[in-house]
Each structure stands twice: as structure tokens, then as C-alpha cells.
């Protein structure tokens, strides 16, 4: 595996686009009020969750329903370490990432040979188990009372959190793009299309699948750990199935298995859901219906609208 490898030209273009877009968002605080900034910050959190779940489900074909649980594992690891042992966030957050990655390896190994629907059920059961544990062991986790977590910054001003999550999103997206454009990215898509052929070519599909499971879990854990230090009160509701449904909805509406999909799907869904909150669970039902229609007619999400634009943007460079 020591052969040289160069990223395709499209990698640089993606990085440039990500950085430029982020630079535009850096000016948002000039026009947005603090509630809007709060909503945007949470949107960034969901961009990270949606993009990392898309890596697992959209690219590799492992339709996990435990992604929200991995975010909670990251959040609670850092939160509990801080609450019980006074561990600071800069140790707590990496610990959360490691914990999520470890659980990711274990769950990834357990569901390795499962077909789509069984994998979905097994991962859902795992998420429920974590949910039940957090609720039941309330003496340690504080259960439904909620675990208070120290804020990352001294004040409740949303501005530094906004920039933290913006930076985190940029880093995660560039990292994911690098992964997708590297050999392992080809292997992931190969496994999703035809695992037997992938093996026959010499791809260690077991290793790739477990690696992707743990990488995507680690990223969810990273987002969750930061999220905990931002909302400062954790509850087992973080593993409510509606949270997972939201991630699926974001990715499918944005474009399942496309890089852009989760990035452009997360914010609109999060915003619409925030503003429609007074209709309660109904707005989830409406989105779920949209997802069913999109999947039933295998329609591409919003990302497909941008494909011609993306081509035109770089066409002159190719000519």
C-alpha cells in the first residue's frame, strides 16, 4: 500500500469551494441576530452528523440507524467526565471521540454480514439500548433530569460557538472529501455496488466496512461532544428516534450518496423544523412523507440541481 497516490483535481476544487463558502458564512453574524445564529450553529452540528452518516449509508451502503446514539456517546462521555471528575473539555471531547470510535468498531463488527434491513434493525436496537441505559442509570447519568455540562466558553454569547461549529464543519467536510477521493473512498462505493466483486478484486471489504463504521461514529462523537458543551444540558432525548429520522431526512432531501447532499440538506430542514416546531411531531411526519416519495421514485435530492452549475463553474479550467 506504499504506492504513491495523488488526489484528483476535483479534490482541490472541493476544498476551495468549502473554504469560500465558509468564508461567506463567517460574515453571517453581521446580519443575523443571536437566535438565527443559534439555529445556524445547530444546523452546522447537523451538517456534520448528516455528512458522516452519509459516508456510512450513502457511500458504503451500511444503512445504520444508530448515528444519533454515537453523537450522544460523544456528548455524554465528555459531559460525564466533566460532571463527575471535573475533567476539562479539551480532554473530555477527544475522549468522547475515542469512545464513539470504539463503540463504532464493536457495532461495525457485529453487523458486518447483515443485509440492509437487518443492519438497520440491529443498529436501531443498539441506539435504543444506549437510550435505555442513559435513562435507567440515572444516578450516574442524571437520566431525564438532564446532565449539566460546562459551557465551552465563559459566556452564553452564541458568537464563539457559531465560529467553533463553522470551523469544525469545514474541517470535517475537508476530511470526508479527502477520504472519499482516496482509495478507501473508491472501495466504499465499490462495496455498496457489489461486495463480491470488490472482494474478487482484492479489496478487504471487512476492514473497509469496519473502518468506515468507526470513522463515521468518531465524527458523530466529535460533533456530539462539542454540542454538549454548547447546549450545556444533555438528556437521553438526544437518542430519540426522531433525531435519527431527522438525519436521514436531511441526507435524502439533500441527495443520498452525494457529497453535497447532506451539506445543503441539513440547514433548510433544521430551520424549517425549528420554525414549524409549534406543529410538533407533524412536521416530522410531513418530512418523512417527502423522504418516502423521493426514495420511492428514486429521485435525486437537491444536490442534483447543483451538478450542472458545478460543471460550468470549472468547465473553463478543463478546456
Amino acid at each position: 500500500m506504499s504506492a504513491s497516490f495523488a488526489f484528483p483535481p476535483s479534490f482541490r476544487r472541493s476544498v476551495i469551494t468549502i473554504v469560500v463558502t465558509a468564508a461567506v458564512f463567517a460574515f453571517a453574524p453581521l446580519v443575523a441576530g443571536s437566535f438565527a445564529l443559534h439555529v445556524l450553529t445547530i444546523s452546522f452540528y447537523f451538517v456534520i452528523l448528516a455528512a458522516s452518516w452519509n459516508l456510512l449509508a450513502g457511500y458504503t451502503g451500511q444503512f445504520s440507524l444508530a448515528h444519533h446514539a454515537f453523537a450522544a456517546i460523544g456528548a455524554y462521555t465528555s459531559g460525564l467526565l466533566g460532571y463527575h471528575y471535573g475533567v476539562p473539555a479539551w480532554i473530555g471531547i477527544p475522549s468522547g471521540v475515542v469512545m464513539a470510535a470504539l463503540f463504532g468498531v464493536i457495532l461495525g463488527r457485529l453487523v458486518l454480514r447483515m443485509r440492509a434491513i437487518y443492519l438497520a434493525i440491529a443498529t436501531w436496537a443498539f441506539a435504543e439500548t444506549v437510550h435505555i441505559y442513559l435513562t435507567a442509570d440515572y444516578q450516574f447519568t442524571r437520566g431525564e433530569l438532564g446532565l449539566s455540562v460546562k459551557p465551552l466558553y465563559g459566556s452564553v454569547d452564541p458568537l464563539p460557538y457559531y465560529f467553533t461549529f463553522l470551523a469544525l464543519t469545514v474541517l470535517v467536510l475537508i476530511g470526508l472529501r479527502a477520504l472519499i477521493d482516496s482509495p478507501i473512498g473508491y472501495f466504499m462505493r465499490a462495496i455498496k455496488d457489489d461486495e463480491l466483486r470488490a472482494k474478487s478484486l482484492g479489496i478487504d471489504t471487512t476492514r473497509v466496512k469496519i473502518a468506515v463504521f468507526s470513522i463515521s461514529s468518531a465524527i458523530a462523537g466529535l460533533a456530539g461532544a462539542f454540542y454538549g458543551h454548547f447546549i450545556v444540558l444533555l438528556s437521553p432525548q438526544m437518542i430519540d428516534f426522531s433525531e435519527m429520522a431527522k438525519i436521514v431526512i436531511m441526507v435524502v432531501i439533500g441527495g443520498f450518496g452525494t457529497f453535497l447532499g447532506p451539506v445543503i440538506g441539513a440547514a433548510p430542514v433544521q430551520m424549517v423544523m425549528t420554525y414549524l416546531q409549534k406543529y410538533g411531531e407533524w412536521n416530522l411526519a410531513i418530512f418523512a412523507l417527502i423522504v418516502i416519495v423521493l426514495m420511492r421514485f428514486s429521485m435525486e435530492g437537491l444536490a442534483s440541481l447543483f451538478t450542472p452549475l458545478w460543471r460550468n463553474l470549472w468547465a473553463r479550467h478543463d478546456a
Binding site: 506504499s2 504506492a3 455496488d193 457489489d194 466483486r197 470488490a198 478484486l201 479489496i203
Partner: peptide, 29 residues
């Protein structure tokens, strides 16, 4: 394979590249 197997959602180039990555070594250039 007798019944041709390819990665249907990948392009022709990507199919070739995947085969290359899967079995490349120091000498493959």
C-alpha cells in the same frame, strides 16, 4: 465473471481506478 460484474454506479474510469487501487503495489506506477 461469466455474468459480467462491474460497479454499475461508478464510471468506466472509476471502475478501472478501483481495480488499480485494489491490487496496486510498489511496482505498479
Amino acid at each position: 465473471f461469466q455474468v459480467t460484474r462491474l460497479f454499475g454506479n461508478m464510471t468506466v474510469s472509476e471502475n478501472l481506478m478501483t481495480s488499480f487501487f485494489a491490487r496496486r503495489n510498489r511496482a505498479t506506477g
